[in-house]
Design a protein around this nucleic acid. Structure first.
Length: 473
DNA sequence: TAGCTCGTTGGACAA
DNA sequence: TTTGTCCAACGAGCT
């Protein structure tokens, strides 16, 4: 191998310089580094919001690299073809990328590796997305974990490698390969909602992510355990957005979270536990990839869920006009900000899969279209957990009551008033912004009456209880 | 191996 | 208003 030929860093969902083992691996080769992002069919089939948000993150990361005298090369096409072409153009003999764990990406990456290796290129993935590789956590009988608590107990005292410093410079090639212009890809086009409105609520880039973490660990972490369930309060870190695109590493959250634990900050352990939930989701998606599109538990594919997303009640759910304030508030929050509070996610999912007896896949797909923190593993696990088809022994009678949930966790109606405009003489700007964000074709206006519930709560609950109890598997 | 304990996030109802 | 109890049954994981 020529000593001077470059290494290609195939950039995907790890848009950061700090604590980036892929970048570190490239640096250690001593070669010039060519960072490249490829818009391939995996990215092109992302939901509207994730695609748009990823584009913003990638464009921002290109600027970060520019500041180091480097670049981010943008190309479009089949990943394997693009990488082979780039190797031919630049003489690169090494390709590195951050390892993925979901079935779609695993399939693509396996093919890329085979194709490149067959051409004599040294192609390797590097662990950068998780704290623990899914196969490195095993039960005492050598199987994977299916329940969170034992998983947590298995890893909570483990040693985790130190953080890697961000480089201050990158070795650049004598000649850069040509790049497309990401702006020409129009990644915001599928956003049929007002991207400009959602843009007010997002937080792009590595520096912003780090600020977010520092702010959270300084103050909010102290009340995290007690206040995180209240959707009207700014009690959570909201780092899921940055974690999803690799603008901050899970390992950094682990280490700084542990530092906060050592400093005696209440809630810090709970925060680390939440980071580990993400690890658990990846543990599951790796060992049971069918979790993304099939009911995880045997037999649940036969459950009598409605799977017609044109039904009027499903449309009401998606357009946040179910007549259930907590459900509508949450769905509007997601539509306007690209984010939804964790408790709200459970409540809307429970209402869809239980009261409405609608398949979790419909909710999963809507979340994939709307979330700026969309993550294939967390989304699949979350939906199946709530639906009861997933990895959890939740009793079937555990059905969230969105009215009592709102009374319990939004007693002062802060969250409700933030997102529901109908019926109020002086609605909040955020509540009104929902009506500005939605497509005109939805025909929504804040002056309309607030709708009656599409499914009355006692009826829906009883119907779900009956169906769950009578299931024949 | 058999037995034991436990299961992120609940609701309804009675006291 | 708050607290305790029950709502089934099962499978995971450990000892």
């Amino acid at each position: 191998m020529s000593e001077k030929s470059p290494v290609i860093w195939w950039v995907r969902r790890e848009l950061r310089l700090a604590d980036n083992p892929v970048l570190q691996n490239c640096i250690e080769t001593g070669r010039p580094i060519i960072p490249v992002f490829i818009l391939d069919d995996v990215f092109e089939t992302y939901g509207a919001c994730p695609l748009w948000r990823f584009g913003l993150g990638a464009a921002h990361f290109a600027e970060t690299l520019n500041a180091l005298g480097s670049r981010l090369i943008f190309r479009k096409g089949r990943a394997s073809d693009v990488l082979q072409a780039l190797c031919d153009e630049t003489g690169a003999e090494l390709v590195r990328w951050g390892r993925a764990y979901d079935p779609e990406q695993v399939k693509r990456d396996t093919g890329v590796k085979q194709d490149l290796t067959a051409k004599g290129i040294d192609a390797k993935s590097v662990a950068a997305h998780l704290i623990f590789e899914p196969w490195d956590v095993e039960t005492k009988t050598g199987t994977f974990y299916k329940v969170y608590s034992p998983f947590w107990r298995a890893i909570k005292d483990r040693h985790v490698a130190d953080l890697i410093q961000a480089p201050s410079a990158l070795k650049t090639p004598a000649k850069w390969p040509a790049s497309e212009d990401i702006a020409h890809w129009k990644l915001a086009d599928p956003m049929k909602r007002g991207a400009a409105i959602v843009a007010r609520h997002i937080c792009v880039g590595e520096e912003a992510a780090r600020d977010r973490l520092d702010r959270f660990l300084k103050d909010a972490v102290n009340t995290y355990k007690s206040r995180r369930d209240y959707p009207g309060e700014p009690a959570t870190s909201k780092l899921s957005e940055n974690l999803a695109w690799g603008e901050i590493s899970a390992r950094m959250l682990w280490h700084l979270g542990h530092r906060a634990i050592d400093e005696g900050k209440h809630g810090a352990e709970h925060f680390v536990k939440e980071v580990v939930w993400r690890e658990f989701a990846y543990h599951l998606i790796w060992h049971t990839p069918h979790i993304v599109d099939q009911s995880w538990r045997e037999g649940w594919e036969h459950f009598p869920w409605n799977e017609d997303d044109t039904r009027i009640d499903v449309v009401a759910w998606k357009t946040a006009r179910t007549g259930i304030p907590f459900v509508d508030a949450a769905l509007r929050e997601m539509y306007v900000t690209g984010h939804m509070h964790n408790r709200a996610r459970m409540v809307v999912a429970s209402y869809l899969t239980k009261h409405m007896m609608t398949h979790w896949r419909i909710g999963q797909a809507w979340f994939e279209d709307c979330l700026i923190d969309w993550d294939p593993a967390a989304n699949a696990m979350g939906w199946q957990w709530t639906a009861g088809s997933g990895p959890d022994a939740a009793p079937y009678f555990r059905i969230f009551n969105p009215v009592t949930q709102l009374e319990k966790f939004d007693r002062d109606q802060v969250y409700e008033h933030r997102w529901i405009a109908e019926g109020l003489s002086n609605p909040s700007d955020t509540a009104l912004s929902y009506f500005k964000a939605v497509p005109k074709s939805w025909g929504l206006t804040p002056d309309a009456d607030y709708p009656d519930p599409i499914v009355a709560l006692p009826d829906g609950r009883q119907r779900a209880l009956d169906a769950y109890q009578n299931r024949s598997f």
